[in-house]
Amino acid sequence: MRETAELIRKEFLLEIRQRYAINGILLYVFSTIFVVQLCFGRVIDEKTWIALFWVILLFAAFNAVSKSFIQEASARRLYYFMIASPLSVVVSKMVYNSLLMLVLGALSLGLFTVFMGFPGLYAGLFAPAFLLGCIGLASALTMVSAIASRSGNNAALMAILGFPVVLPLLLLLVKASQRALTGTVEFAELLRLLSAIALIDLVVVLLAVILFPYLWRD
């Protein structure tokens, strides 16, 4: 537990010291949203807003998370391998990436609102879906990044391995967001959508915890 907290702290320190990485992602998010604004103008219908928002967030997630294992040089990986258990490594990475995704997501949401306006989304459904979605995307991509980092050409692999894995989650998120458009949502419907998203999150986290030790060792 303390090991995990220590590793999370290390991630934060690294991020702050190498500010170019996070700045790059922020700039990426800003540029894409700006391009969208230039292309579509302010008037887009609400379904397009939701689709664009999630697509941009998905690519931001790929950019942000893909470096989480790939940046670790093999010497450094060996060092972690000696001092930390695989469980705390993967948990710390997932927690850190989830937090990063939440910040990125909130930021994209803000930028989207500034540039494109905000559709009347029912917060009772959208907010938890957004929260669970960011966590799920970050965790799934953390795992994919760990897999891709063990192969030769990891940058290209990250994308092709990642898409099929995050697609179920992405489709659910878009569906939930679209449902949130209609204003009030029935409680049963809300529960059904959120529990489906939570189920995916849970499966991803469990699988990552179980499978990561096999990736970690040499």
């Binding site: 799934a140 795992m143 994919v144 897999i147 391995l161 099929p164 894995v165 179920p168 189920l199 995916i200 499966v203 991803v204 699988l207 990552a208 499978l211 096999y214 990736l215």
Partner: peptide, 12 residues
């Protein structure tokens, strides 16, 4: 590892 990961998500 990838096979197990992907298959479980596909089942979902």
């Amino acid at each position: 590892v990838y096979n197990i990961f992907a298959f479980m998500l596909l089942v979902i």
